[in-house]
Amino acid sequence: MGADVFTPEQRSAVMRAVPGKDTSAELKLRRLLTRMGLRYRLHRRDLPGSPDVAFIGRKTAVFVHGCFWHGHDCRRGARTPKTNADYWIAKVARNRARDAAAETALATIGWRAEVVWECELKDEAALEARLRLQLGPAGAPNSSGV
């Protein structure tokens, strides 16, 4: 087990610098959605979980999850750091619990939650096909007909 190369103060500064919104993964998804002709709202704090992208008329919230931070089952998300492993396991578990609570709260108010994983952004064609199936074509009315 290797020691951290940073002092606790330096590590704290590094972690503070990790962005919470407008990440490269989010920006890549937003460019794709714009190319698809879809209109959306960003970071709706009035919705549970403050989704990264919200489609108001479709009542659909989209969360962009980093594979490591949210414990995805891909190669990057499944790895556990060698240093301070107990902390990271607990941290990812808390993130997953918070994600599940947000999805449940959204469902309670009649919204759908969709998750786009960071690794999915590598194959934009496949992601676009999935999003078209889940969101429908641009300009389409939502499922309630409103």
Rank of each mutant, 00 (worst) to 15 (best):
M1Q: 12
M1W: 07
D4W: 11
V5N: 07
F6C: 12
T7W: 14
P8D: 11
S12K: 15
V14W: 08
M15R: 12
V18K: 09
P19R: 13
G20C: 05
S24D: 14
A25Y: 00
A25S: 14
E26A: 07
E26Q: 13
K28T: 14
K28Q: 14
K28H: 11
R30K: 15
R31P: 02
R31E: 05
L32I: 05
L33G: 08
T34H: 14
G37W: 08
G37F: 08
G37S: 07
L38M: 11
L42D: 03
D46A: 11
L47P: 00
L47W: 04
P48C: 12
P51M: 10
P51C: 11
D52K: 01
V53A: 06
V53D: 02
A54L: 11
F55D: 01
G57N: 11
R58L: 11
R58C: 05
A61T: 02
A61K: 07
A61C: 08
V62Y: 06
V64L: 10
V64R: 03
C67Q: 03
W69E: 02
W69I: 08
G71C: 00
H72Y: 05
H72V: 03
H72F: 03
D73P: 04
C74W: 09
R75D: 01
R75E: 02
G77A: 10
G77R: 01
G77P: 02
A78I: 10
R79M: 03
R79L: 02
T80Q: 09
P81Q: 07
K82S: 11
N84D: 14
A85I: 13
D86E: 15
D86T: 15
Y87L: 06
W88T: 05
W88K: 09
A93F: 01
R96G: 01
R96D: 01
A97Q: 13
A97R: 15
R98F: 12
A100E: 14
A101C: 08
A102R: 04
E103F: 08
A105P: 01
L106P: 01
L106S: 02
T108S: 10
T108P: 00
I109V: 10
I109C: 05
E114I: 15
V116R: 03
W117I: 07
C119L: 07
C119P: 04
D123N: 12
A126T: 10
L127S: 08
E128F: 01
A129F: 06
R130E: 04
L131M: 07
R132C: 03
R132G: 04
L133C: 06
G136C: 09
A138M: 09
A138E: 04
A138P: 10
G139T: 08
G139M: 06
A140D: 08
P141C: 10
P141R: 15
P141H: 12
G145F: 11
G145L: 12
V146M: 07
